[in-house]
Amino acid sequence: MNTLSPTRTGTGASRAGALAGPDPRPGIFDELSKRELRRAMLSGIAIPGYQVPYGSREMPVARGWGSGGLQATLSLVCDEDQLKVIDQGEDAGVNASNLRRLITEHTGAGEETDTRAADIIQSRHRIPEQPLTDGQILVLQVPNAEPLFRIVQEMDEQRRMHAEADYAKMWVWLYEDIVHNGLITAAAGYPVLVEGRYVMTPSPIPRWDVPKMNDSDAITILSAGREKRLFAVPPHTRVVPLTFDDRPFEVEYTPGTACRLCGSDDTYLVEEPGENGAPGTWSCSDTDFCTRRRTGDAPADVAGQPVELARAALRRATREQEETS
């Protein structure tokens, strides 16, 4: 198809062909669009937390089903890369399996489930328990890119608020939450302040995973295909969940629970309901980590920060209970 060398620049079309680089694989994403995504990602990395618009292309998945993450991953992945895709911490989920197969078949990258061996991790709803390392890229699929969407509806006003770092209405929203509910109820997609400047949604990861974004060794790319915007958190960036000084940030935690398979009580656990209304059982959300914990191939203490937050909250609650009784 593309036999033009960069020196043969006759028409606009052929110049574009030369710019596009190697022949595209017959498939789903053209090289020029990938370049656009890479430029947007570089902009996002240069301005941590800032939402960069891009021309989201049609993908073989519906918008809202990971089309943004898919475009980011397709733009980043190389033949020699190992790719891990998870949905709710699970490599074997239907959506995760299909996305992983789709990408590897079109790029030549290898399929991977071990977080440690993956170069790119595309994820919906979770950040792996295994701490990410320098050189890895985490691609998060984002359904709602705008953290202010519940607070003001006008897009002009949202942009003005970001431009002027005018987040008073976000703080009022948190204040109202505590007034009405006694605590901040925002669960998935808890608003964070990135490098002291932009308020960002960390995508619908649980609160448990939010501290993992702070000062991470890896690059995080968050991409919303439906909303045609992406944003990024470069390595070693301050990511701070918004909360009042006298209302500490808390993570999900059910005291006394542990994974029924690997016994971990320091990982993010999900409940499986029992039969006929019997009490449920708990297991790790991150299947790769759970499997490796069982074979002794996972670090004994990794989740450090989230579980420490959970335990501190528990100690506070016990203390308050003692004080009131």
Binding site: D166, A168, W171, F244, D245, D246, R247
Partner: peptide
């Protein structure tokens, strides 16, 4: 909060 109050 606009002028920086952060204590609930």
């Amino acid at each position: 909060t606009a002028v920086g109050w952060r204590s609930y």
